[in-house]
Every structure is written in structure tokens, then in C-alpha cells.
Write a protein that binds this DNA or RNA. Structure first.
Lengths: 236, 236
DNA sequence: CCAACGGTGTGTTTTATAACATAATAAGTA
DNA sequence: TACTTATTATGTTATAAAACACACCGTTGG
């Protein structure tokens, strides 16, 4: 089956999504976004941007899933956050007026919309509502980052992995069964999200499965006992 | 010697500081801040706000030094950032419209100005320049937090401590000698900034001193070899 | 067809760092 | 002044998690 996709399909999807920061913008303002954007497709595993590059504009994810990560000591990758459709990426560097300090890779086939920098800044200057939404969004991200700093440094392996599974669940939600996390990461990505080695991620996932907290079927992870998973996460 | 302090001395100091987000505001806008603020003094060690409380407004540090920290597993404290005069605190919770997710304690005698919430939001709505400055400031903080997440999780003790000393230097600068860090933290605070135990902070500081990278005299820390300290920090 | 390869899974060893213990010193405080 | 109490210092032990090693898939491709 071939799906016909109209010219402004992707940007409209970004704007209309209930979670979008562009939702509820005036028609004229939405028009500015439509007129000043471009889009691009990425296959699973492809790089969207790399640490050190300069942001050409604000990127909004139209479809797919993206990981944002930094390379640390010895090239070891730490995933900072996961992006879902209508989420934006590269905004920090753009707003701070600096180069990207993290990289973005599609972990599923993805489509992005790039809103041209000057048009966006003009819009922000003219719309206090948009400004406040961006301020709120940045505040949320900062809180998330602060939380992660403490969790990743203080919690033990089990707590860190449990928290990461909950983060994935909160970001991407469940499949129709209400149990399967709607995200299929490699064990390595799960490890890089949880600040541990791949072997330890695999090992600890197995332990969780043996304890009937989760069920594993390849990359499919089912949360069987959400309360217990929460308890493991909070107790560290 | 008694120093006479006029009614608006503190808020004016916050506004006029070159690093302030309120610098370059129009006279009328500055007037709003002056008319809608209160101030308070805190002694070294006193709590300014606690995790869970609701922010009454935006706090700007008029004088002194403040640590922002979160309590993690088993009440273990992780310092997220250090605030210097004209820096603001509690902004994240205020802008996100939620309770504080971290606590603030004065590590020196400090004076804060509290800018009343509604007046501030009105100002933000009316001034795109202020909005953009706040967006930029939040972006900077988010970048800082992301960096710290990776450093604190991946670097070894020596690297973490070296980085923390550099963070203190970058925040508070040097004394007139151009070497002594203008901040006198307890070993415990240094440890909580660097994600390590107090004993390890003490031990590693001693090692740095033995290696002539720093010189210690009580709480006074002199950076003798900035290049080597940088190298220790970046190599992890 | 088999080889090569990326991803998974599991056991063993090593090590960085926390946890613990105990002084020694400094700083308040009665 | 002496008496607590906090802070700094250092040595020892225990342990969580990395590092390493190897085996087992399922794919891809020559």
C-alpha cells in the first residue's frame, strides 16, 4: 500500500501533536513554520547531527525515535535522553548560540523537520506564549537532567536499569497489550542509557526476568510487575 | 565601620551586575523589579529553600555563595551547582510551575532578593529580550547539567575532583594572587560536588598536593599547575 | 555452503571506590 | 579553662561493577 504524503504533512504532524510546543500557535504563526521548514528522512542507525556541528535550525521529530548522547571517557556513550515524535532536538545548542554538545542518532527510521533559525527566533520574539512554552520545556529538561545525574551516580545497577526501563515506558508508552514497552533498543543502548556495561545490562535484565518483574522476548520487554519495578528504581 | 545600606541596595546590585539576566532591562522594567521584590539574609549553613516547597518567586543572590543540591539514595547529597552573586536560584521550579526538586543552602553569609512571581511573569510576557535571556540561561544550565552527568558517571575519582576544582574556579574565580580559589568549601561539600566520599576527597586532595598540582592550607586551595589539573580532569 | 560478523548470554577475575575504623586536629561552647 | 563536637586525615577491609574471556546464536554475503 502506498501512502500519499503531501508537501506539508510532516511539519503539520509536528505542529498538531498534543505534545508539541507549537500546538495552539495562531494560524499566522503556524504559517511561518510551514513556510520556513525543510524535512529529511533517516534510516535506523543514521546520524542526525554530531557533537561539534552548528545547528542550522530547530529540529522537530515528525516520526520515528531518536537517541541523544554524549561521548565520554574513552568514547563511552552516555544516552542523555530519548526523543519521541513531536519532540524537539538540538534546541539547547540553538538557543545558547553554540555548537551541539551531544549527538543524535535515529534508532528507528525517522523523519525530521528543520525550522529555519531566523524565522524561529523572530517567532519567539513576537510570541510570549511560545517563549513561555520554550522556557517551560527547558525547565522540564533541566529537571530531568538533574534527576538523572543523581540517579546515575548514586543508584546501583538494578536501580539504574529499572529507572531506565521506566523512562522508556514514560517516553514511548506501551503497546496495545498495556505491558510491552513501545521501544525496541539493543542491549547496548539500554546499557548506555543506564550507565553500565552491556554485559551487566544483559545480566540484570535476565535477573529481572527470572524475578518475574519483566518478561523478555528478544528486544521486546514486557513490564509484568510495575510496582516492583518502581520499588527497585526508587530504592536504588 | 558601619556601612549604610539603602532600601534598594540589594536588588540594585542584582540588576546591575554584568552577569545578571536583568542587566540592560529598560528603566521602567527595572522599576517593576524594584517595586515587587523583598529580600532576606541567611547565615552560613542556613537553608534558603528545600526540595518539595513551592517557589514564591524568582530568587536572585545579592551577595554570598549558595549550593544547590539533591538528596539521593540514603540521603546522600549531590551538589548540582554553585551560585555566585547575581546568579538566580529556584528558577527551574518557578518556570516549570512545580515544587523545588532540589534544596539551597548558603555556604557563606548571603543575601537574596525575591522577585514576586506574577510581576516577573508579566515582565517576561512583555519583554522578548528578557525571555530570550532566560531561554539562553536555561540552555546554558542544561548543557552544564548534561556535561556533569557524563563526567560524574564516567570519570574516575581524580578526574571528578579535578573537574570540580575547575568548576569552583570558573564560578568564583581567584583571589588577588591569581591562584587561590575564591571559595572555601568543607571537604564534605567538595566530596558532594564530586560524587565521592569525604575520605576520598580528602585523600585525593592530599595526593594532588603531593604532586604539586595544588597547594592546600586548610580550606584554602591554590591551583599551582592549571594545565596538569586540566589534563587530569579531561583524561578522567 | 561455510565464513564472518554483530548481537546476545554467562562465568571468572580484577579493580576502583565505598565502607569502616580510628586518630589527630580545630573550633565552638559551657 | 576544659569539654564537647565537627572537621580533617589516613590506614584497612569489603564489595559493586568493570574488564575479560568465551560460547552461542541468527544474519548476511561471498
Amino acid at each position: 500500500m502506498k501512502t500519499t504524503v503531501y508537501k506539508n504533512h510532516y511539519i503539520q504532524a509536528c505542529i498538531d501533536n498534543p505534545g508539541s510546543i507549537f500546538k495552539n500557535l495562531k494560524i499566522g504563526e503556524q504559517e511561518v513554520l510551514v513556510k520556513n521548514h525543510s524535512y529529511a528522512h533517516y534510516h535506523k542507525g543514521e546520524i542526525i547531527f554530531k557533537e561539534g556541528e552548528k545547528p542550522p535550525g530547530l529540529i522537530s521529530l515528525a516520526s520515528g525515535k531518536v537517541k541523544i548522547f554524549k561521548e565520554g571517557v574513552g568514547g563511552r556513550e552516555q544516552i542523555l535522553r530519548m526523543v519521541k515524535p513531536a519532540g524537539i532536538l538540538g534546541f539547547r545548542a540553538l538557543f545558547a548560540g553554540v555548537a551541539y554538545s551531544a549527538s543524535a542518532i535515529a534508532i528507528e527510521d525517522s523523519t525530521i523537520c528543520i525550522i529555519e533559525k531566523d524565522a524561529l527566533f523572530k517567532l519567539v520574539r513576537e510570541s510570549p506564549e511560545l517563549s513561555l512554552k520554550i522556557i517551560k520545556m527547558l525547565s522540564y529538561e533541566l529537571g530531568f537532567s538533574n534527576n538523572r545525574t543523581v540517579s546515575l551516580t548514586q543508584k546501583h545497577i538494578r536501580g539504574r536499569l529499572a529507572e531506565s526501563l521506566l523512562v522508556l515506558k514514560d517516553t514511548y508508552g506501551f503497546e496495545k497489550d498495556g505491558k510491552t514497552i513501545k521501544a525496541y533498543l539493543s542491549r547496548e543502548d539500554i546499557a548506555n542509557l543506564s550507565n553500565m556495561t552491556t554485559s551487566n545490562a544483559i545480566r540484570t535484565l535476565s535477573t529481572f526476568a527470572a524475578e518475574k518483574v519483566i518478561a523478555i522476548d528478544g528486544r521486546k520487554i514486557k513490564i509484568l510487575d510495575p510496582l516492583k519495578l518502581n520499588r527497585i528504581s526508587t530504592l536504588g
